[in-house]
Design a protein around this nucleic acid. Structure first.
Lengths: 205, 205
DNA sequence: CGTATGCTCAAACGATCGTTTGATTCGTGC
DNA sequence: GCACGAATCAAACGATCGTTTGAGCATACG
């Protein structure tokens, strides 16, 4: 089995990511999906076993990438005395922005927002089991930098930040690049907006 | 046609609200729905015409209520010199919290979050056409109270606030009442948390 | 009493879904 | 050159979906 970007498996994953983002997990049928990928209908069940396992693979591919970058960024600043709240927020937000501007991954944040909206227990357990430690690590660091917040209030505010970012990055927000700024600049500006808002909210009296 | 709370039509609407929140619009079938409501399968198409029109009615019933309360609260404070940012946020948030604690309406915010996540154009156009003026009125008032923000930044931050609230109120958040506080108190505390966070975010430097 | 009207019901319709099957093609190592 | 496993293919399977049908029931009105 090859892992070149043009194997049947990879082409299915790429087409799935787009169609799941656009029409939802139920809304996108395997017939649309395989047609868009230019492969046979039976290829999904042959390579992934079932549609549900395909959905899991779509998540795994991007979340490994996203959370790897997040953990790398966090480990560089965690526990250090000069680290600011904005630094931690940057470690959380910037990898997501980079992913969402990275060509083929640009629709994944929408898929993620959809997964949050669906209260499907299987999917939520999968997310929690595989990537729960990332949120936990970030929460530890937030707690260190916000010592005046009770545990309850901290969870509250981290959750509100997560909601704001998910909502914004899933494509509702103003993340529309104007033609006179480069993509890199736009990404920087977007990150600054998000970080400033989130830091102020976390620091609320 | 009666409008008593036990007519076939009302029982369908109530069951639909719950099942749409729990399993999504596609995930909840008319067969589950009519079985839960204790009515015949054909009753949905007889009373509403189609499943899509039923979905619209589920939205209309609650959104008329929600946005009516929001506009009433806003009209009492709009344009007045002593009005604070927290007042406007309260006018936006509290009606939603009251609705989500109001027995049969408690699942509607989840339905709304789901609708946001699905990028279905028909549904979004319906929401925008029927209730867009509410968000516009609130934005005008926010602009008055935040004169230093550019139009772009204002839209940005209002969108982030909306995302945080939708996320929180759709049931992910910490909105879990402890047994030693009354529901009224809990609602007040929740509102205070949300308003404090949102006000700080909007006022960010 | 008879008959319209509003509503409910079981049953069926065609379409589409995820999945499986069995034959066929392709590439590789003996 | 041959055989064997991996991969692809068209076709079909059973299940479930939203919707429609036409008969049956109730209530109100002449």
């Amino acid at each position: 089995m090859q892992t070149s970007p043009h194997t049947t498996k990879e082409r299915i994953l790429t087409a799935a990511e787009e169609l799941f983002a656009r029409h939802g997990f139920d809304g996108a049928s395997l017939r649309q999906l395989t047609a868009a990928a230019g492969v046979n209908l039976a290829a999904v069940n042959y390579h992934f076993g079932s549609k549900d396992r395909l959905i899991e693979e779509v998540f795994r591919r991007r979340l490994d990438q996203l959370n790897g970058h997040r953990m790398t960024a966090l480990s560089r600043i965690a526990g250090q005395p000069q680290t600011t709240l904005e630094d931690v927020l940057a470690a959380f937000i910037k990898p997501a922005l980079e992913l969402s501007h990275e060509g083929s991954g640009s629709l994944f944040m929408r898929v993620l927002a959809r997964a949050f909206a669906e209260h499907d227990d299987t999917l939520r357990r999968f997310l929690s089991e595989n990537y729960g430690h990332v949120m936990r690590q970030f929460t530890v660091e937030f707690a260190r930098l916000l010592p005046d917040l009770s545990k309850e209030e901290l969870y509250w505010r981290v959750d509100l930040v997560t909601g704001a970012l998910t909502h914004a990055m899933s494509g509702f927000g103003m993340i529309q690049r104007k033609s006179d700024v480069t993509e890199r600049m736009h990404r920087e500006q977007t990150a600054e907006h998000l970080i400033r808002f989130a830091a102020a909210g976390l620091n609320a009296p």
